[in-house]
Amino acid sequence: MSDKPTSPIRQTDDEARALAASILTGARIAALGLWDADAARPHVTRIAFVHDPDLGYFTLVSDLSKHASLMKQSPVASLLIGEAPDKGDPLAFPRLTLAADAAFIPRDARERVAMRALWLERHPKAALYIDFGDFNFVRFTPLGADLNGGFGKAFRLCKTDLP
């Protein structure tokens, strides 16, 4: 009998990749984790979120928010994506923790027009503030992810496994 513990991480396969794609494509919100160097502790907040095959992973933030200033200090971010249904054990439902670098999109960037249109399609109430001068899009460039597909279904995904 071996004393070496068995890894709970399964071999990444097409089913895991498809589940990750499903979680990312359907996501409207995420929990954004950042490091607050001044306070020497993590900072987590809820953000609205969009994933699009052409435009990537992104959010819309106000420069007035703490998370905007933290991303400007350090682009290293973590996003927890995946909503549990109203009923059942929330830990039994799939979720994905995405490690990413955050980059602010310049207001004059060509892709901003497409990002704005898609954002309003997915988050129509943002029409109230999307054009305010302090609101900017932030793109997340994935570095990798941990996928929890439910009980006993853990996977480590590299950036090439993500849509």
Results as ranks from 00 to 15, higher is better:
residue 84 A to C: 09
residue 84 A to H: 11
residue 84 A to N: 06
residue 85 P to G: 03
residue 85 P to S: 02
residue 87 K to D: 08
residue 87 K to R: 15
residue 87 K to L: 10
residue 87 K to I: 05
residue 88 G to L: 03
residue 88 G to F: 09
residue 88 G to S: 11
residue 89 D to W: 14
residue 89 D to C: 14
residue 89 D to G: 10
residue 89 D to L: 13
residue 90 P to I: 14
residue 91 L to P: 07
residue 91 L to A: 12
residue 92 A to F: 12
residue 92 A to V: 05
residue 92 A to P: 05
residue 93 F to L: 06
residue 93 F to A: 07
residue 93 F to D: 00
residue 94 P to E: 02
residue 95 R to Y: 08
residue 96 L to T: 06
residue 96 L to I: 11
residue 96 L to W: 06
residue 97 T to H: 11
residue 97 T to I: 10
residue 97 T to P: 11
residue 97 T to N: 10
residue 98 L to Y: 04
residue 99 A to F: 11
residue 99 A to D: 02
residue 99 A to M: 11
residue 100 A to N: 01
residue 100 A to M: 02
residue 101 D to F: 11
residue 101 D to I: 09
residue 101 D to P: 04
residue 101 D to M: 12
residue 102 A to W: 02
residue 102 A to T: 04
residue 103 A to H: 00
residue 103 A to Q: 00
residue 104 F to Q: 01
residue 104 F to I: 04
residue 106 P to N: 13
residue 106 P to V: 06
residue 107 R to P: 06
residue 107 R to H: 14
residue 108 D to E: 09
residue 108 D to W: 10
residue 108 D to T: 13
residue 110 R to T: 15
residue 110 R to S: 15
residue 110 R to M: 15
residue 111 E to P: 07
residue 111 E to R: 15
residue 112 R to Q: 04
residue 112 R to V: 02
residue 112 R to G: 02
residue 113 V to R: 15
residue 114 A to V: 11
residue 114 A to W: 14
residue 114 A to C: 09
residue 114 A to P: 02
residue 115 M to R: 11
residue 115 M to N: 01
residue 115 M to S: 01
residue 115 M to Q: 07
residue 115 M to G: 01
residue 115 M to L: 14
residue 116 R to F: 03
residue 117 A to W: 15
residue 117 A to I: 14
residue 118 L to T: 12
residue 119 W to G: 05
residue 119 W to N: 03
residue 119 W to L: 04
residue 120 L to V: 04
residue 121 E to H: 15
residue 121 E to L: 14
residue 122 R to L: 04
residue 122 R to S: 05
residue 123 H to D: 07
residue 123 H to A: 09
residue 123 H to P: 06
residue 123 H to M: 10
residue 124 P to F: 13
residue 124 P to L: 09
residue 124 P to S: 08
residue 125 K to M: 12
residue 125 K to C: 13
residue 125 K to L: 10
residue 126 A to H: 10
residue 126 A to P: 04
residue 126 A to T: 07
residue 126 A to G: 05
residue 127 A to Y: 13
residue 127 A to M: 13
residue 128 L to I: 12
residue 128 L to F: 13
residue 128 L to V: 12
residue 129 Y to R: 08
residue 129 Y to P: 01
residue 129 Y to F: 15
residue 131 D to I: 08
residue 132 F to A: 02
residue 132 F to R: 08
residue 134 D to V: 03
residue 134 D to T: 04
residue 135 F to Q: 09
residue 135 F to H: 06
residue 136 N to A: 09
residue 136 N to Q: 08
residue 136 N to K: 12
residue 136 N to G: 08
residue 136 N to W: 12
residue 137 F to Q: 00
residue 137 F to N: 00
residue 137 F to A: 00
residue 137 F to D: 00
